[in-house]
Design a protein around this nucleic acid. Structure first.
Lengths: 236, 236
DNA sequence: AAGTGGTCTAGACCACCTT
DNA sequence: AGGTGGTCTAGACCACTTA
């Protein structure tokens, strides 16, 4: 049983958030293929996937780079997520059945137990399930993959920046209110709550990014696309 | 410019909207590969791309199908587009420079000339440029690919259902007001206008879908995933 | 057990950037 | 011209489904 094959995308993502692949670093299909012991094609597909998540940028015929995970990136991602999840929770508020509400409550109970016990990874996983359930209730199958694509990346970022128990208590409170709004079919309330909920997460991540020291990133996307000398500066 | 061979995705998309591949039809990588005279891999990637657009659905180990282009599908797509474009136009309203506004006005002039002359395809192309420019001003590079992915499909749908000169006059009026809101940095107005603009397009498409006779579609996604006998019914 | 859908390998090949 | 990034071919192979 080789774990080696398969899921090259996840391995690259892990290597990026783990710092093995530095932000801004140049990456080539060939190098990654030999590194992971696979052939061209799986790496190519993985890079596309990561490009879809925004983790990798690529200029035609000039190779790809690890995207700088800076405030701008976080901001972009959360604006997308917020716009879509607010739209989704509106639909969910219109459609939620008592059974749906019960399902959310059950998930929330589990989630809060994980919070009490400080089981961070489990909290993140259950939190994802909570939001996925809302999105399933919303019943827009075409939006699901878009939103879902960001979750793996966000999970990696939380893991990287540390979880922080202080944040989780607020999460539970938000969720309880969200469930109430859905149960009451109060679309406006649900939209407002979801917007605030997502914004909190964004601000939280941004503050950690700032606290973690400035240089988590750099590699200004090289607005003048033809110079490379800058790369020599990154060494330390 | 792509040599000729490539861009299997576009060829499949064209075959779908042209009715060569019927809605609901079963499609396999192998069949498409032989049909277009290419090997497995390009078709596989193309199918993924189309899945990303929502044009194709796929169940693991059970093959793919042409997605039913019904009211529900149109609705899903436009909810995504509306949510994202409203978010984008808000950002654009905050950032638009006089030069940006001038660029939009220039595009709009060209667009309206095409409208007067009844050059439908050119109108669609220029309309796309208009919205792309707003999204560029918004400066969320991570949202661009998501929104952009739907444009090729929408263009194909307009082409398929017919353009309709009646619609275009409203478009020009909406655009003029949008430009004014952006120039005034009026974020709320811009958001409201964009929401209405997108909703109009959705309703327009839906009405054409309804007018075009009911059976543009069918193939209920077979909610009980294990039966295939139904397939024999589709023959006529 | 046979069939079908789908991914991986290994290398050829091509287009564009770099001398 | 030479180099590098990236796509395509042809077939092996694996996983899951169906008989």
């Amino acid at each position: 049983m080789f774990p080696s094959n398969h899921d090259i995308g996840q391995r690259i993502r892990d290597d990026i958030v783990a710092g093995v692949l530095r932000f801004g670093e140049r990456i080539t299909i060939d190098a990654l293929a030999t590194r992971y012991g696979v052939s061209h094609m799986p790496v190519r597909e993985a890079l596309r996937e990561l490009q879809g998540e925004g983790l990798v940028t690529s200029e035609p015929n000039r190779g790809a780079r690890v995207r700088a995970v800076d405030a701008n990136f976080i901001d972009n991602l959360f604006e997308i997520r917020t716009a879509l999840e607010v739209m989704m929770v509106r639909r969910a508020a219109r459609r939620a059945t008592p059974a749906d509400v019960a399902e959310l409550e059950a998930i929330e109970v589990v989630l809060e137990r994980h919070i009490e016990r400080g089981e961070h990874a489990a909290v993140v996983a259950e939190n994802r399930r909570f939001h996925q359930t809302i999105n399933r209730i919303a019943d827009n199958v075409d939006a699901l993959p878009v939103v879902d694509r960001h979750w793996t990346l966000l999970a990696a970022l939380w893991r990287h920046f540390g979880y922080g128990a202080d944040r989780f208590s607020g999460v539970a409170n938000d969720h309880r209110h969200l469930i109430a709004a859905l149960a009451a079919h109060d679309e406006e309330a649900a939209a407002m709550l979801m917007g605030a909920h997502a914004t909190k997460a964004k601000l939280e991540l941004l503050s950690r990014l700032g606290a973690q020291a400035g240089p988590a990133v750099t590699n200004a996307p090289s607005t003048s696309p033809r110079q490379r000398a800058v790369r020599h500066l990154r060494r330390a």
